[in-house]
């Protein structure tokens, strides 16, 4: 099963290598990884989408938690969350099919961000199912290039707002996963 894991880390060089090294060394999967600074400039948030059975996800959470540079780990999959990805799609476009393309763009509330006589570049934001659906519809037109940010996510409401930063590794968290 797919899990979206939000990891708050020290905003320092080398931290990304620690996280990606952990995943490769222990054979965990990374479907996507997105990283950026948070409201606190000393903290970065990594959003990692991974998949595996419960035991694997449990290990991923615990092993991440063990890293000294990791401040907090949350599996957002268990909570209500908002998940977004941004994707740029460059498509072969001719005068003949441009109207059809525009219809898809409008339906998905996407944006055309670049037009040339032979191509069209579309920007679309959404959750994964929306992006997958859009890619599926665009594929017959001839997708030339795709760039995607990877998923970023936050829990809904104020619940998980990094309030227990200091509590990492406490019994509460462990009971939850044991």
């Amino acid at each position: 099963m797919k899990h979206t894991i939000s990891v708050l880390v020290e905003n320092q060089s080398g931290v990304l290598a620690r996280i990606s090294g952990l995943f490769s060394a222990r054979g965990f999967n990374i479907d996507s990884l997105a990283v950026g600074e948070t409201e606190d400039s000393t903290v970065s948030r990594m959003t990692i989408v991974s998949h595996g059975d419960n035991r694997v996800i449990d290990q991923i959470m615990k092993q991440l938690n063990k890293l000294v540079d990791v401040i907090q780990v949350t599996d957002l999959t268990q909570a209500e969350m908002i998940e977004r990805e941004l994707i740029l799609i460059k498509i072969q476009a001719t005068a003949a099919n441009r109207a059809d393309l525009m219809q898809i763009v409008n339906t998905f509330r996407a944006k055309v961000v670049d037009v040339t006589p032979k191509s069209l570049t579309i920007e679309v934001t959404g959750n994964q199912s929306k992006i997958d659906a859009m890619l599926e519809l665009l594929r017959p037109f001839g997708i030339k290039e795709v760039a995607r940010t990877g998923v970023i996510a936050l829990a809904r409401g104020l619940e998980s707002k990094s309030k227990d930063k200091e509590k990492k590794g406490t019994a509460k968290k462990i009971v939850l996963t044991a």
Binding site: V9, K168, G169, T170
Partner: peptide, 15 residues
Amino acid sequence: KIRGYAPTPLADSKQ
């Protein structure tokens, strides 16, 4: 003080 490092969790008495 290392905010990402809480080394000695106290064992849960219920457990």
